[in-house]
Amino acid sequence: MSSPFWRHYRTLVSQGIQAELADLERLVSPVLFALTTLLLFAFAIGDVEPALRVHIYLAETFLTALFALQINFSRLFEPDRQDRVFDLMRTYPVDHTAWFLAKYTLVLAMGSATLGPTLGFAAFVNQSPSQPLFSWVVVGVAAMALAGLAALGVLLSAMTLKANARQILYPLLYFPLATPVLLAAVQSSQLYLSSGQITADVRAWLGLLLGFDVIYITLGALLFTELVDES
């Protein structure tokens, strides 16, 4: 397809990826942050009753992921902020929805690069011989959570682009808005891991997660245009 929309989308995605690769620290540091956080959780929590193990594992994993993803999200527009690239982009004939989708794609990719190692490492260090913790369903839940959070992340990033004290403002806006995701992700995974099957309760939580995804992706696409548009 070579309509302007997809041309812009492809150009922006490849540019975003190149910008990430040009500065590898940006990709690696959230993962290192996640590993450090998991280590801290291990120190804080110590030995866990087998009955509580699954719950604790999921709580610390998703919390860690939420924290680490915040780093990915909040720095999304960092390359564009330098040298007024962002402003120049607004004077260029770029389709704003394509711009949002490109940023969304990019943050999904970066988020997966953070989320994958986090989930794997957390399951690896928390497992016991009788309780293997890694589960593809949990990975699926995390992916669903990422889908909504990424849209929220792009939106907040564009919103706080011109704000002072972004570093502190960002988490203060992101965490309260992300609480439903954390809750739904932990609850659905826990219900699944304790019963071993996708029960009606699990499905209800996943429905909430899906609702969150739909709302944030829709709002993201609509409101991002409003944020970058002028006149």
Binding site: T11, Q15, Q18, A22, D23, D83, R84, M89, V94
Partner: peptide, 21 residues
């Protein structure tokens, strides 16, 4: 400001902006 991606090379920068055009 010049509106350049500072971490990237000159060719990459020009290619990007002209593609958007």
């Amino acid at each position: 400001a010049n509106g350049l991606y500072l971490k990237m090379g000159a060719t990459q920068n020009l290619q990007f902006w002209s593609r958007l055009r």
